[in-house]
Structures are given as structure tokens and as C-alpha cells.
């Protein structure tokens, strides 16, 4: 519904040999991964493994110090963040990062900042249909919502750009289990409508359960990859990320 329909070939993202640094500290080293159109790919890993850095580098708010990011055949490694949004990459950042003083409706409108088409209001209604609780809070400042509502708003805001690739950073962080279920149900629904999703989660079991494929990141490097089902059954994964 909110995914942009494109007939032309599979939309895909490939990351090759990616490195990124904060000052002299290397946060990512030689990261390689691919995402095919319509997939949910989950990235699991402990705190500080570099998951957020990877998403930020894909979105262009953190510079890559080596390697390439190719989206739909185009090398976007050095593109500005703004240009990547207009190419169809949207991110729901860690910790939600709502525009506190702006109303719920304006937060959603900001998600469509680069759009020039006439269907912004239509899409906004779709977000309210996806998360009915937000519809009652249209005029409220985003900062006054509860954590779960803010997560829904952050997801809605990202969808307002009509992304083809949705990057989700820890959407379950700090939320009550019942809210987490709602968020994950929305993610599954988006996939069923054709959205491509890259999901970063510490909650490895939940993330791999809804994913097609998965990667595990440790101290900035990919250490495991494969089908989500295989990863869920993998002894190493069980031990390191599932706490079994």
C-alpha cells in the first residue's frame, strides 16, 4: 500500500567492503551484505556491534571511509542524505527521534518533505489507518506521546517519504511487549504489501522470526549470514543472541 510500485527489475541494495570511523575509532570493517526487493533482512548483534553505524552509513548521515553502497544499480556511497531519501531510502532511527515541538500531523508531513505529488494527504490517512491511535492525536506535539506512540509516529514519518527500502533501527527498544507486537505486525504487513525492509534489532528472536534472511554483526564485522530460519536454529546464534 505504501510501497512505491515499480515494474522495473528488482530493487536491491548491496554493501561491499564498507568501513566507517568515528574519529580514529573504526566502527565498521569490511561489511558486505545484500538485500533483494521485497525481503525482510534482519541484522542482529550486541550493543556497540556497529548496527546503528551501518544504518547511518547507508542513510548517508555517517560517512563511509571505505567500500561501496549500491542501490538499484547506482553507487550512492557519496550521495548526501537528502539525495538518498529522494532515491527511496527511509530510516526509522534508534530512539525514535520525533520532532518534539511539531504536532503529530506535522511530524508525518515532514516525512514527505521532499515529495511534490498531490497524494500526501491520502498517505497521511493511510498512516492513521495503520496506527489508529495516532489519528486521535493529530494536533498534539509529538514529544508528548508515549514511547510506543512515538515509535508508531517515527515509522509513519518514514513511510510518508514513500520509501522503497525501509531501514528500521531497534523499533522494539524500550517498549512494552504488547506494543512491540503491534510494531512487528505492522512491519509484517508492510512486507506483505511489497516493502523491502532492513531490520536492525537486539531482540534477535523477534527480528529473525519475521525475516527472510539475517546477518549477525560483531565488533563492526559481519560474522554470520544466512536464511533466517537456519540462523534461528544455529547453535552459535542461539548461544550468542537468543540466550538459549
Amino acid at each position: 500500500m505504501l510501497a512505491r510500485e515499480e515494474a522495473s527489475g528488482p530493487a536491491w541494495l548491496s554493501v561491499e567492503g564498507l568501513a566507517s570511523h568515528y574519529g580514529r575509532i573504526q566502527a565498521l570493517r569490511d561489511v558486505a551484505l545484500t538485500i533483494a526487493k521485497g525481503e525482510i533482512v534482519s541484522l542482529v548483534g550486541a550493543n556497540g556491534a556497529g548496527k546503528t553505524t551501518l544504518l547511518r552509513t547507508i542513510s548517508g548521515v555517517q560517512p563511509a571511509s571505505a567500500g561501496r553502497i549500491v542501490f538499484e544499480g547506482e553507487d550512492i556511497t557519496t550521495l548526501a542524505a537528502t539525495a538518498r531519501v529522494s532515491r527511496g531510502i527511509a530510516q526509522v532511527p534508534e530512539g525514535r527521534q520525533i520532532f518534539g515541538p511539531l504536532s503529530v500531523a506535522d511530524n508525518l508531513r515532514m516525512g514527505a518533505y521532499l515529495r511534490k505529488d498531490g497524494e500526501i494527504a491520502v498517505d497521511m490517512d493511510r498512516i492513521y489507518a495503520l496506527f489508529p491511535i495516532l489519528a486521535g492525536f493529530r494536533a498534539r506535539p509529538g514529544g508528548s506521546l508515549s514511547g510506543g506512540q512515538q515509535q508508531m509516529l517515527a515509522l509513519g514519518r518514514a513511510l510518508m517519504s514513500r520509501p522503497r527500502l525501509l531501514l528500521l533501527d531497534e523499533p522494539s527498544m524500550g517498549l512494552a511487549p504488547v506494543i512491540v507486537d503491534q510494531i512487528f505486525a505492522a512491519i509484517v504487513r508492510l512486507k506483505s504489501e511489497g516493502m523491502t525492509i532492513f531490520l536492525v534489532e537486539q531482540n534477535a528472536f523477534a527480528a529473525l522470526s519475521i525475516a527472510d534472511r539475517g546477518y549477525a554483526l560483531e565488533t563492526g564485522s559481519v560474522i554470520l549470514s544466512g536464511n533466517a530460519r537456519d540462523l534461528l536454529a544455529d547453535e552459535k546464534v542461539k548461544e550468542a543472541y537468543l540466550g538459549i
Partner: peptide, 23 residues
């Protein structure tokens, strides 16, 4: 106005503003 709100958005959260395409 959209641009006026975008300035507020940058002030409120620079990272999130960049992520929705506001420079």
C-alpha cells in the same frame, strides 16, 4: 509553511531532519 516547520524540525532534531531529507 513547510519550510518554517522544517527549520523547527532541524532545531528539534537535526539527525531526524536529515533522515527525512531536510538539509
Amino acid at each position: 509553511t513547510l519550510v518554517g516547520k522544517a527549520i523547527t524540525a532541524v532545531a528539534a532534531n537535526r539527525l531526524a531532519a536529515e533522515l527525512v531529507g531536510i538539509s
